[in-house]
Design a protein around this nucleic acid. Structure first.
Lengths: 162, 162
DNA sequence: CTCTAATAGTTGTAGCGACAACTAAAGGGA
DNA sequence: TCCCTTTAGTTGTCGCTACAACTATTAGAG
């Protein structure tokens, strides 16, 4: 049971990755909060609904696409419903299930927030990388996700974009 | 002011990156919480202190190495002090400043937690990648950090590992 | 030698997320 | 049919983080 410590190069990379993982979410939150009064997670919930048929998804499906637990999603959707951006209604086919649907106000909100968010994504990440690096990062995140979420229980989102 | 939307490849990569950024911290937290009753951030604070001369750092220096705001660090160190893992004392040279020092108990805690944490880091990320991918990820995170933290105000940590 | 601005750190508060406990409905034997 | 398990979702609570407001000390301009 000897510990396999990290090599110099592995450690340097690991530390940089942690720093990115630490800083990126707060940057995204800050921009969206300031410009649209949404957290980044709020935005993603709305964005996923906006791309779904009828702008409607079951809570479980929405949770997968946003890589969230059902509990967290439930809290968030409750708040979004209170703000009139989303509405919930029981699923007719399965009485256990709940559907979440984007309201007209919610749709307008996403439309308004999207350009600024994309600009931020470019500024902070995408435009900092060469096309080759984008391709490399694609492979790298793919490999890591296979470890983080082997069965794809959470985080099915990326499969919709292949 | 037309929006430069993301290409198919850019979007797929961006979504994967977001998923990693969403899932990785909670995985690290879960392991450390379960095995050592520490958050990942707690662990990093203790780890940074353990590598410093005298196992002591000024709050500002510690905040940079952990990519945290001073406010956040202050709260965390307060809690760690309450648990006897860290102690604080005023800096003699600069009466505004506070030094944080790892206690013997804190040192023991890091020693105990480190192997499990490294094993997790390998399992989830490092061992999922080839040496080439590690090198690529090093470059990629470097480029992104230059955007996230241009002046290196926060996140000076990685420079200690070059 | 002031007086102002910058630096160092702390604290209060509010909001979000993790975890555990819970209800309710559907599925699946025997 | 009955019972047990699984699935779907909600809710309460606690702890952590962001943000803003605050104090105290130091550095720098004039």
């Amino acid at each position: 049971m000897d510990t396999q410590w990290l090599s110099r190069e592995e450690l340097a990379t690991w530390v940089r990755l942690l720093t990115v993982v630490e800083l990126l979410p707060s940057r995204l939150d800050t921009q969206l909060r300031r410009d649209s009064a949404l957290t980044h997670f709020d935005y993603y919930v709305l964005a996923m609904l906006s791309e779904a048929p009828e702008r409607t998804l079951r809570m479980t499906a929405l949770a997968e696409r946003t890589a969230a637990t059902l509990a967290r999603l439930s809290h968030v959707v409750q708040r979004l419903e209170g703000r009139g951006l989303v509405e919930r209604f029981p699923c007719p086919q399965d009485k256990r299930a709940t559907n979440a649907r984007l309201t007209a106000t919610g749709w307008a909100k996403v439309q308004e927030a999207a350009p600024g968010h994309v600009r931020t994504a470019r500024q902070l990440v995408i435009d900092a990388l060469t096309p080759e690096q984008i391709a490399q990062l694609h492979e790298i995140t793919e490999a890591v996700l296979a470890r983080l979420d082997p069965e794809g229980k959470r985080a099915s989102l990326h499969r919709h974009y292949d």
